[in-house]
């Protein structure tokens, strides 16, 4: 019920609205301190030139930082890598996650909980720890991957898995996929379990079983869940930092640079805070657009 009250200075407010405002205040305070104010200063700072050690010496440069970004080959490499990660993450994490979820939902009769736990386990390990584990696996001198390949007579990359600019970004993708596929699997599995068994029974009568049922029944029924999974993966791929920083630090020769690591490099190593702000604003705009899509898709889901 929507009660209306009049306060002492004559404004009329519904009590529901007052409750909503009161409940929102703590979140708004935190969002203002940790998101809105830093974002505002990042936008302001992107029009200035200053360094970490000259924070009181801001020089107005207008749109120079944005023009510089448009001409900076490493910025484009970083952006391209983010898109590669987006694409590969969708295939690896959502694609494989969907297949695994389908297998767990209908493909096997026993051991579902054990398999689900094993596949989900990497998700609860910190990204940094996961990266360090994979650093050891990829090591060109003593790593288990090279040893296995050598043992079965296959060649190993001469520059190393993480030292070869042509393959290093894909090696990072595998690590990210290994950690996050389990989460996607659980998300999609929840959607699958919401699909009525009667639909499959009806489809079976019409001759749709196995892959055919998955393609024509399962996928359309969980379409919205998959869209949410894709958006979560896409936003995560644009925010990626830890895997790249620990595994390659953006190298070799900037080949695995992503926006997150490139912003860090510009801000804290090269001390171009203004330029780093401009790059952050670009990332912010991309994240906002993707966030808007995610919200829309979530509501539909």
């Amino acid at each position: 019920m929507n009660k209306t009250q009049t306060n002492s200075i004559g404004f009329s407010l519904s009590s529901d609205r007052v409750s909503v405002i009161i409940l929102l205040i703590p979140a708004l305070i935190f969002c203002t301190i940790f998101i809105f104010i830093p974002a505002f200063w990042a936008i302001v700072g992107s029009f200035y030139s200053y360094g970490m050690t000259s924070l009181n010496d801001w020089k107005w440069v207008g749109f120079d930082n944005y023009i510089k970004a448009s001409q900076d080959e490493f910025f484009w490499i970083a952006l391209k890598n983010n898109f590669i990660i987006v694409f590969a993450s969708i295939v690896l994490q959502v694609g494989v996650g969907t297949i695994l979820a389908a297998i767990l939902d209908r493909g096997i009769k026993y051991g579902k909980v054990i398999f689900r736990t094993i596949i989900f386990t990497p998700m609860v390990i910190s990204s940094v720890a996961v990266s360090i584990i994979w650093l050891l696996i990829y090591d060109p001198n003593f790593g288990i991957l090279n040893n296995i390949l050598i043992a079965i007579g296959l060649p190993t990359p001469s520059m190393g898995w993480l030292g070869d600019p042509d393959i290093s970004i894909w090696m990072i993708m595998i690590v990210a996929g290994w950690q996050n596929t389990g989460f996607m699997m659980v998300l999609i599995l929840a959607g699958l379990q919401g699909v009525s068994k009667e639909v499959y029974d009806a489809a079976e009568i019409d001759g749709a079983t196995g892959v055919k049922a998955f393609w024509y029944i399962t996928l359309p029924m969980i379409r919205n869940i998959i869209i949410v999974a894709i958006l979560i993966t896409t936003i995560g791929a644009f925010k990626v930092f830890e895997f790249v920083y620990v595994l390659t630090q953006g190298g070799p020769s900037n080949a695995t640079q992503v926006l997150g690591t490139y912003i860090y490099l510009q801000a804290f190593n090269l001390l171009h805070m203004g330029y780093a702000n401009a790059l952050s604003v670009v990332l912010l705009v991309i994240a906002l657009i993707l966030g808007w899509f995610q919200l829309k898709a979530s509501r539909r889901a």
């Binding site: 650093l135 990829y138 090591d139 060109p140 001198n141 003593f142 990359p157 001469s158 520059m159 190393g160 898995w161 993480l162 030292g163 070869d164 190298g251 070799p252």
Partner: peptide, 11 residues
């Protein structure tokens, strides 16, 4: 060694 750019200095 091979792959010096992929080799950790501590190793």
């Amino acid at each position: 060694n091979d792959a010096p750019n992929a080799t950790n200095p501590e190793l």
